[in-house]
Design a protein around this nucleic acid. Sequence first.
DNA 1: CTCACTGCAAACTATTTGCATCGTA
DNA 2: TACGATGCAAATAGTTTGCAGTGAG
Lengths: 140, 140
Amino acid sequence: MERLQELIQEFKQHGYKMTPQRRAIIEIITGCVSVHPTAEQIHERMLERMPDTSLATVYNTLRELVAIGQVYELNLGHGVRQYELSRDEHAHLVCLNCGKIADVKGDFRQLASLFPDCNGFHPVRHQVTIFGLCASCRET
Amino acid sequence: MERLQELIQEFKQHGYKMTPQRRAIIEIITGCVSVHPTAEQIHERMLERMPDTSLATVYNTLRELVAIGQVYELNLGHGVRQYELSRDEHAHLVCLNCGKIADVKGDFRQLASLFPDCNGFHPVRHQVTIFGLCASCRET
DNA sequence: CTCACTGCAAACTATTTGCATCGTA
DNA sequence: TACGATGCAAATAGTTTGCAGTGAG
């Protein structure tokens, strides 16, 4: 809940107007804890509340949220972009068989030290994706 | 060069027929050392040698190479898929400003240990992408 | 000689854009 | 009230598919 307020606050502070559509999108994405929804999925949820919402509005709002760093855009190898609230760092486990995605917390403090020679590159954030087989797909 | 032979070998062993188009695509991708070409870029290079080559053939061949694990498909956040020869593990540094991509070798042995609780997930390979600002974009 | 592979074009999916209208600040 | 935001539809970009003809094994 606090996170929702923070997002709304941050959003306004960047000069964006708060509209019912945007508030709804922010609420939806704030409610997605370990889901990584696509724009399409967020749009479906929007339609339940506001049946006239345009998919373009969803895309626009997501772009803005990504721009202010409150939402991350994930490219996990299906041709679709998925979104998640920016939060404590974690890696994504992607099952090569069923496509299921799981989050796993990790200790990222050492990560930078694994790559010593970055030649003046200044890291902002990192995305760690581990492809493999999930427990249930291994059995079969 | 050895790598080229290995790829061709591996490709045939999986029951795929070797055609001039496929050989050319394999040669091109083998020659891309620190480039991460898109299907479109590979196609352009193909046209220089074989002007009738279809983009669909490029996509098909890439899909096969990915399927046999000799080529990796990268989704680095521009809406395009990029390809690279599978080789020793490295991370990708992606500049948020200019989009330039650099490879950086790292010691991945410890990576798994950063994520202790993977709940039966069996990792096959991992993709580490670091977003940030490259040296030249930092200056300006 | 067969069946996988090719080129072409059309189909499809995901995302972006242009524009008239609407509503927040 | 002004200007940014919206919905709609059309446009674009990237990728896949269907099909008739071709060529590798």
